[in-house]
Amino acid sequence: MAVANLTRRRSALFDHPLPWLLPLIAILALLAIFPLFYSIWLSFYEWSTFNRQLEFVGWRNWATLFDDDRLSASLIVTFSYFAIALSFELVLGMGLALLLDADHRGFGFLRGALTLTLVIPPAVAGMMFLLMEDAEFGVITYVLQTIGLIDRGTPILATPSLALAGVLLVEIWQWTPFMVLIFMAGLRSLPTEPFEAALIDGASWWMTFRRITLPMMGKVIAIAVLIRGIDLFRVFDYVFVMTSGGPGTRTFSLSLYAWQQTFSFVKWGYGATLSLVTLAIVLVIANLFIWLTKVRW
């Protein structure tokens, strides 16, 4: 009788999802929930250089947000970067994926070669493009001069109207292949029947793409946009290496600003506040996007 009860209790325990979820809950609590609440707590404090301790400042850090010109400038830069890079990576990624979605000789190699950009650390890629966009000896500058797009000796990364484009160049070069790989995986998993039917019905390539490929790829595109979008909003490496946020504040991203306040100027409270603002923006946009595109996890 006692053994039966014990077995029943043990069975009930193992049937319950909680024991199986505990490791995940512990990891989430340690790596996500605790840092989040700690950041919220920290945003009401500020490090006092003079007293060498955290001091309670109430809502001061949050109030500063509304009177911070640098924050407004960095938000504009971050949103511009996000929108332009995502648009280019999406369109170019889909275009290249469609071109490479074939089994001709050599295409396998091309698909493999595409992944090479992804293994380069972003800071190294930034340094490469910093040199390639140099006004004196940069190959990109030389090509743009040759085709007449810029004047001789134009410093791309130090020219206000070009600096953001100069940083976007490396971003798009490095991360478009990521989109290509995701889209290609999606294209390869599509059923062939709808395409055969469209062919028999005489549908044009554009009609097939618009009416069959795109709708069927919707979820894949949504996931790719979500992953890249979140990443783009945190842009740091390229601007840090290539422009230090300049000229002026033309490439000063929100993440760079939060990093600078936190680590260079030891304004831990305000840095935490800026990080929370970034998190809030990403959460709102991502969830809005998920709701609009009806992505189901």
């Binding site: 130090a158 000229p247 002026g248 504040t249 260079s264």
Partner: peptide
């Protein structure tokens, strides 16, 4: 010296 002044000097040379 590493932010307030050089950021604004940079803006000056950028024509801002």
């Amino acid at each position: 010296s590493s932010d307030t002044i050089p950021v604004r000097l940079g803006k000056y040379f950028a024509g801002d």
